[in-house]
Design a protein around this nucleic acid. Structure first.
Lengths: 135, 135
DNA sequence: TATTGAACTTGCAAATTACAAGTAATTTTT
DNA sequence: AAAAATTACTTGTAATTTGCAAGTTCAATA
């Protein structure tokens, strides 16, 4: 595991969080692992919005250093690496859920997201329980 | 009001949200307005983590374009501008609350934040009601 | 054994950020 | 009333980060 120093600007919890995942890509990687079940480098690369290969590599190292994801042996092949969320990473679920709810309320998003947002509104705890059970 | 085009990478709700506030500073500005009651350019500049003046100006324009904050006349002086959250901006509160809870659980943060995180854990709805009532 | 696939790395141009200084319109002080 | 200080920015430039294309290494398949 590569080591990377994360510089924290202050001891404010919001600032601390943003020092870890406050950029345009990190939470999308976490989304892909958490909701789309993507867990190899190649899948994450093709994942969605077209992340550059060097940026993906950089963020994976960073997220691993932050204890949000971990690398494991892939059951199918030695050439593959399995990326998965740690408990700390799984604990980001409530944040993502609130982001989804906010976006759905204030922006046009895709139909599936609307359905998911409705589920959240009905019973947020149940949605979170379901997410955690999958991880 | 200046116009700025925000490029959306996809219609995913998380991606959409990150296209608006997915950077190291935007949510800190929102935090300062929401929780610290800072509402002038100068106050936000001295706000906390040392944002650069051009970046602050840039983000304020962006957040206004996104409908998250609005500019108003300051009651004290014509030289001042009052920045405040719109309802859309206030709706970011649950996201910030979850971020605070996550950081407090997984990182060392300042004592006040711990107290706030405990309040959140006890009764999240009450905390949110209180935040909304202040806005 | 040769080709493909997976997970990266490297090099460089383009964009963004940070720092320092400057400007214009008030407001306060003298 | 004139001078000094505030307030909200803008501008210039260096440093950092990002994005794109190509290359490398090891493993798996033909």
């Amino acid at each position: 595991m590569k080591k990377r120093i994360i510089a924290f600007r202050s001891d404010c919890p919001i600032s601390t969080a943003l020092d870890i995942f406050g950029d345009k890509w990190s939470l999308l990687i976490i989304r892909d692992i958490m909701f789309k079940g993507l867990n190899t480098y190649g899948d994450l690369l093709k994942g969605g919005e077209g992340i550059a290969t060097n940026i993906l590599a950089d963020r994976l190292v960073l997220l691993e250093c932050a204890g949000i994801i971990s690398k494991a042996k892939h059951p199918d092949s030695k050439a593959k690496v399995l990326y998965q969320l740690t408990p700390k990473g799984a604990d980001l679920a409530p944040i993502l859920v609130e982001i989804i709810a906010w976006s759905e309320k204030h922006h046009k998003v895709h139909p599936e997201a609307i359905a998911f947002a409705n589920e959240i509104e009905k019973d947020k705890a149940a949605v979170l329980t379901q997410i955690y059970s999958r991880l």
